[in-house]
């Protein structure tokens, strides 16, 4: 069966050089106007099956949010292909995207900025549905209440404005909005990272319950390893716009192959364990996406880097069992398309 979402070699670059006047430089006595290009996503491929949760982890600046927003066409991709349900949507314009909106929705990170402060809750949650409805909808009010009930909000909440809700309740409203068109795929961009721990658990449970009820898939973006392990079937680890490792969650957590994945797992604090010794940690910080390192993106921080890492960029190679890694230390596998 064809995957629900298939992303092939997706690339996203942003020109941040500004106008010609911002770019002018004098270098070696010559006037130049260099462009500044952010390489946010650099050839990422993955698939999501129906009913599956793919978790994307990585630190800030690794391109995971940009990737999510490109998949849902908030950004026009620079290169590569996005196929939803077998339909290539890479070049779709506004009008051809309209039927796609019913199949793919998004949940946002910031519960305060993601709801229009001047709209009533009933109007917020029904907006995607009404915008994509074929004809007049006679039962708007009932539908809105039913949606709110699904996310644990009552009739009394329907006529309130967002500022009358707590962060967790606002995130429920955002989930109801995504749910209104009964999509096949929901892209969740750090949906719980702005919430308190006890509320995080409520929202994660709700998201899983809804998935079980409706059978949709999640592309779940987060920086939090414990959250990603809890919610995902498969995990992709991103670094500097590259997918460095993907696989079933147990393979990633129990047998991480990429030195970056290993470092990430070692650095995450675990309840009741001592602070990991400095020797386990990777040094330095993520390089700028304006100037990608040659070869492997992680080689500048990698404790195991050798000559080849600077010379040649590793590609994702399958290690069996759906586990793939882009690292010269694991060179034996078969390249993943």
């Amino acid at each position: 069966m064809a995957p629900l979402l298939a992303v092939r070699d997706l690339r996203q670059r942003f020109d941040v050089s500004g106008s010609i006047f911002d770019r002018l430089r004098i270098r070696n006595g010559r006037i130049t106007a260099p462009r500044r290009i952010v390489h946010a996503v650099n050839g990422v491929s993955f698939e999501i099956a129906r009913g599956e949760v793919l978790g994307l982890v990585g630190e800030s600046g690794c391109g995971k949010s940009t990737l999510a927003k490109t998949v849902i066409k908030l950004h026009e991709p620079t290169g590569g292909a996005i196929a939803l349900d077998g339909e290539d949507i890479t070049q779709h314009d506004f009008h051809r995207m309209r039927p796609i909106r019913k199949k793919m929705q998004m949940i946002f990170q910031d519960p305060y900025a993601s709801l229009n402060p001047r709209q009533r809750v009933r109007d917020i949650v029904m907006e995607p549905y009404l915008e994509n409805a074929a004809g007049p909808v006679p039962d708007v009010a009932e539908r809105a209440l039913a949606l709110l009930a699904k996310v644990g909000l009552g009739r009394e909440h329907a006529d309130r404005y967002p500022h009358q809700f707590s962060g967790g309740q606002r995130q429920r409203i955002g989930i109801a909005r995504a749910l209104s068109v009964e999509p096949d795929l929901i892209i969740a961009d750090e949906p719980v990272s702005a919430l308190d721990v006890s509320i995080q658990a409520q929202i994660l449970n709700l998201m899983m319950d809804l998935k079980d009820e409706f059978g949709f898939s999640y592309l779940f973006i987060t920086h939090d390893l414990s959250v990603v392990r809890h919610i995902s079937d498969r995990i992709g680890v991103m670094y500097l716009g590259f997918m460095v490792e993907t696989g079933p969650k147990d393979a990633i957590f129990e047998n991480p192959l990429h030195p970056y994945t290993q470092a990430l797992l070692a650095a995450a604090p675990v309840l009741g364990t001592p602070l990991p010794p400095a020797a386990d940690a990777i040094k330095g910080e993520v390089p700028s996406a304006l100037n990608l390192p040659t070869g492997c993106p992680f080689r500048t921080r990698c404790p195991l880097a050798f000559d080849r890492c600077a010379a040649e960029r590793p590609v994702l190679k399958s290690q069996g069992g759906g586990h793939a890694v882009a690292c010269h230390l694991h060179d034996a596998g078969v390249p993943v398309a």
Binding site: S166, G168, Q169, D196, V197, S198, I199, Q200, A201, Q202, L204, N205, M208, L225, S226, V227, R229, H230, I231, K249, D250, F253, A268, V270, L271
Partner: peptide, 24 residues
Amino acid sequence: RGLLDSIPHHDKAQARLRQIPGSV
């Protein structure tokens, strides 16, 4: 106890998180 329970355990998977109901 509720706070501790609501942290997803990164070293063991569980089906559902225990949650504190309601909000502050």
